[in-house]
Amino acid sequence: MRQLVLKVHSRCNLACDHCYVYRHADQRWRERPRLIAPDTVAQVARRLGEHLARHRLDRVRVVLHGGEPLLAGPAVLDRTVHTLRAALPPGALLDVGVQTNGVLLDEEFLALCHRHDIDVGVSLDGDQAANDRHRRYPDGRGSFADVAAALRLLARPEHRSRWAGLLCTIDLANDPLRVYESLLAFAPPRLDLLLPHGNWTTPPPRRRPGGAETPYGDWLVAVFDRWYSTTPRRTGIRLFESLIALVLGGRSGTRALGFAEPDIMTIETDGTIEGTDTLKTTDDASMRTGLDVFRHSFDEALRHPSLAGRPTGPEALAAECRACPVLSACGGGLYAHRFRAGAGFAHPSVYCPDLYRLIRHVQRVVATDVDALRRRALSTRQRR
Rank of each mutant, 00 (worst) to 15 (best):
L291Y: 15
L307T: 11
C352E: 05
Y335D: 13
L327N: 11
A285Q: 15
S297G: 06
T312D: 04
F294V: 14
S328R: 15
C324K: 06
R360W: 06
E300M: 12
D292T: 12
F339N: 08
L358T: 03
M287R: 15
F339D: 08
P325T: 09
H347D: 04
P311K: 13
P353A: 00
C321R: 12
S349A: 07
G290L: 02
A301K: 08
A318W: 10
V326Y: 01
T312S: 01
A319N: 02
D354F: 04
A329W: 04
A285H: 15
D284A: 15
R295T: 12
S297R: 02
A301F: 14
Y351P: 04
P311L: 07
R295K: 14
G331H: 02
C330T: 02
G332D: 12
V326N: 00
R288K: 15
A285E: 14
S297M: 02
H304E: 11
L358K: 01
S349K: 07
D299S: 11
G313Y: 02
A346F: 01
G332H: 11
L355T: 00
R338S: 07
P353C: 05
I359N: 01
V293Q: 01
V326T: 03
C321S: 11
D292N: 15
D284I: 07
E315T: 07
Y351E: 04
A308W: 01
V293W: 03
L355C: 00
H337S: 15
H347L: 05
D284C: 09
A318R: 11
A336S: 13
D292V: 09
F294W: 13
A323F: 04
F339S: 07
L358F: 00
E300T: 14
I359L: 07
S349M: 10
V350E: 12
S328I: 05
V350H: 09
R288A: 14
G313N: 03
P305E: 05
G344K: 04
I359C: 02
D292P: 10
F345M: 02
G313D: 01
A341N: 08
V350G: 13
G290Y: 08
A285I: 07
F298Y: 11
G333W: 05
R295W: 06
P353Q: 04
R360K: 08
R360N: 14
G342E: 07
A316Q: 00
E315M: 05
D284Q: 10
E315Q: 14
G331M: 02
C324T: 10
L307W: 03
A319H: 11
Y335C: 01
L307P: 06
A285C: 10
L291F: 14
Y335Q: 10
A343S: 13
A336G: 05
M287K: 09
A343M: 05
R295V: 03
A336Q: 12
L317F: 05
E300V: 13
T289W: 13
P311E: 11
L317A: 03
R338G: 10
P325K: 09
R360F: 07
R303C: 13
R310W: 02
A285V: 12
C330M: 00
G342C: 09
L307A: 03
A336C: 08
P325S: 14
A341Q: 14
V293D: 04
L307Q: 06
P305S: 06
P348N: 13
S297A: 05
S349E: 08
P353N: 02
V350L: 10
R295N: 15
L334N: 09
G290D: 05
A318G: 09
F339V: 07
S306N: 12
G332V: 11
C321K: 12
G331S: 02
E315F: 04
